[in-house]
């Protein structure tokens, strides 16, 4: 409390051409630190896929596919996608609570792009998704899942689902901004995800379903994502499904990221 430097308005500006990215990364660092300090946040993304794998493969697999091993080969990409998609809701719930705390008002009073706190949070979320993907793959391998393609394709599969989840998380953020309570974000998020995940080719072959359901399953982007993942992990056609999955992700991002940022800006 002894010395205080003379106030000055101008700040030394480091010669970076991407202040937006730098600010977002600083804020992502904040989110990661908070995650590491609350390891219970990782329970859902680590235990849930393992439990789902065990339930679907060992409880239902024999009945659905005749053999648990055959069903594991079929269902693992689906479980992977399902867990990652369900974990995208967390960011909406967390931001809904976080934004009521004072630190977001301070972010708003700083000369940083308005979207930086949101983008930063999504970058940190990708770490959680990557952990889910890793845990599911390891659990799958332990249970006997085997890939039959090249490492490049496996990495491409991981990146594809990660990108899809990152785009989907903007819907959760938007919900988090417009909902009054964190509980409603969770409720509506799960409600929306059920038809998207279960109403797809994730858990059963599409041709076993009634016609009206097949119609939905065929236009559901998650079906295309699942089929593309299957192709990348265990072989089969990829290109068309992957393109549709990528296109839908991009569309979701293009619609919901601006909506989320706008809702965040106007939420005073």
């Amino acid at each position: 409390m002894t010395t205080m430097t003379v106030p000055q308005v101008a700040q030394p500006r480091p010669p970076s051409s991407l202040p937006w990215l730098r600010h977002s990364l600083s804020l992502a660092g904040r989110s990661v630190r908070k995650m590491v300090r609350h390891p219970e946040q990782f329970f859902d993304v680590t235990l849930q896929p393992v439990l789902f794998l065990i339930i679907f493969v060992y409880v239902l697999g024999g009945a659905i596919a005749g053999s648990t091993q055959d069903y594991l080969q079929f269902v693992l990409p689906g479980i992977l996608i399902q867990t990652v998609l369900f974990s995208t809701i967390a960011i909406g719930v967390n931001l809904n609570t976080d934004i009521k705390e004072g630190v977001f008002d301070r972010f708003r009073s700083l000369p940083i792009p308005r979207s930086a706190p949101l983008v930063g949070a999504t970058i940190a979320e990708c770490l959680r998704y990557a952990i889910t993907i890793g845990v599911t793959m390891v659990a799958g391998f332990v249970m006997g899942f085997r890939t039959s393609t090249s490492p490049v394709r496996i990495v491409a599969a991981m990146l594809l689902v990660l990108f899809f989840a990152w785009c989907m998380c903007w819907i959760a953020i938007w919900l988090g901004m417009i909902m009054r309570e964190a509980g409603s974000v969770q409720g509506i998020g799960f409600l929306a995800l059920f038809p998207l995940t279960f109403g797809s080719s994730m858990f059963a072959a599409t041709d076993t379903m009634p016609g009206w359901l097949q119609a939905w399953v065929r236009i559901n982007p998650v079906t295309h994502l699942t089929d593309a993942m299957r192709g990348l992990l265990t072989g089969g056609p990829v290109a068309q499904d992957a393109l549709i999955a990528l296109g839908t992700s991009g569309l979701i991002l293009a619609v919901f990221a601006p909506l989320a940022v706008r809702a965040y800006r106007t939420k005073a």
Partner: peptide, 21 residues
């Protein structure tokens, strides 16, 4: 307009400084 309660005092100040370039 306050600070992030989950971060330490130092982490908070360093974060704001980084955001101020």
């Amino acid at each position: 307009a306050s600070v992030d309660e989950q971060l330490s005092g130092r982490e908070n100040l360093e974060l704001f400084a980084r955001l101020l370039d």
